Simulated assay, not measured.
Amino acid sequence: MVIKQDALLEEVVSWRRHLHENAELSHQEYKTSEYIYNLVKTFPGLTVTRPTRTSVYAVLEGTKKSELKTYTIAFRADIDALPIVEEADVDFKSKTTGVMHACGHDAHAAMLLGAAKALSEKRDKISGEIRFIFQHAEEVTPGGAVELVEKGVMDGVDYVFALHVYPYENAGKFTMKEGKLNAAGDDFEIKVIGSGGHASTPELTIDPLIIGAEIATNIQQIVSRKLPILKAPVITVTKFNCGNSLNVIAGHAELGGTIRSHDPVVRVQAREYLEQVVEGIARAHGAETEIKWDIGCAAVHNNKEATAITRAVAQGLVGVENVVEMEDPLFGAEDFAAYSEVVPASMQFIGVHNESFGEAYPLHHPKFKIDESALKYGVNYFVKIAENFTNGLG
């Protein structure tokens, strides 16, 4: 069932470039989802619906009779882009000002479209059910995956799989990880409310800038002094705004940042300690504070059996020597966690770098780009997983 690529690969590349040129932000993927919906509708044997306004859900019922156990498996691709001005040297740059597919979701969608087309044309050789999920809003908390799980896309699913592009390995390689893959992500916004005044008489004010700076510094001690080092999260302050005049002490300051954690207990403790630090410092200086939390998705957990399936598939496609084992989980957040919390799951990484690019720019970088030859490996990865389940090997 594994395809030889030529004609289909040309289509997959063209689909990816169309999506790249027409990038849309989270919850605004109207043209993106319409394009995917209209395309998938041309594939034979698929039932296609729109569970949300900007997502697409397609189901393929195999017609092959089997005496073996049949499975329902799901494949997921995300489709939203990022608020980034593109600087990559490609001929198909984003036409949407300030919006770019800098995380590879265009490639994710194109690979899954290729697999959907290949599998739909061989449905007489498929037993069981395959679900294709083109998901909106992965880039914002809590993520579109949560909404789709609530809509029932995981009901009755035995396993769910996904691929994510990985700029630190070349095309033709996969990176695998069993267990914890990445981190839960919780964002915070802090407002320090003091009492402003003239810069020449700071003693008559409650200076929120000084208080905010003390808060930003002391938050770092949560990781180094309050939590077990082997389970320690990352706490990063990324925003600090205060005042707009050189001779005026402002009345308030605003800070913001994120907590990334792997351990669910430490995740809660980190938030509690942060609130203690903020409130304690503010109280000591006579200021008030407001804290707002944006609680994100949990950490992705790759099921042992599902990971073994995907590892075997990857090794069969590119050879054992080209399948790299990741030792430590990442601190990036990924809303695929919503699926992995309810169904045995495996999200793995596909290399998309090419040595001719020079520097490997990371995800979310304005110069991020991929080697499109990697797309064929992603298409075949999904197709081969489906083939294994069809043959009762799942």
Rank of each mutant, 00 (worst) to 15 (best):
I36N: 00
N38L: 05
L39V: 12
K41M: 09
T42V: 00
F43N: 01
F43S: 03
F43V: 13
F43E: 00
P44L: 05
P44N: 08
P44F: 05
P44Q: 06
G45A: 04
G45R: 07
G45C: 05
L46K: 02
L46C: 01
L46G: 00
T47I: 11
T47A: 11
T47L: 09
T47E: 14
T47N: 13
V48D: 06
V48Y: 04
T49M: 11
T49F: 09
R50V: 02
R50C: 04
P51N: 11
P51W: 07
P51V: 10
P51S: 12
R53K: 15
R53T: 10
R53V: 06
R53E: 08
S55Y: 04
S55F: 03
V56Q: 10
A58V: 13
A58E: 09
V59F: 09
V59S: 08
V59I: 15
L60F: 04
E61C: 00
E61H: 14
G62T: 07
G62D: 04
T63G: 10
T63K: 15
K64N: 11
K64H: 13
K64I: 09
K65V: 14
K65L: 11
K65W: 01
S66R: 10
S66M: 10
E67R: 01
K69G: 07
T70F: 00
T72G: 01
T72M: 02
A74Y: 02
A74S: 10
F75C: 07
D78M: 03
A81S: 14
A81V: 07
V85Y: 06
V85K: 09
E86G: 10
E87M: 14
E87D: 13
E87H: 12
A88Q: 08
D89Q: 09
D89F: 00
D89Y: 01
V90C: 08
V90W: 09
D91Q: 15
D91N: 15
D91K: 15
F92H: 15
K93F: 06
K93A: 14
K93N: 15
S94I: 08
K95C: 05
T97I: 04
T97V: 08
G98Q: 07
V99P: 04
V99R: 02
V99N: 06
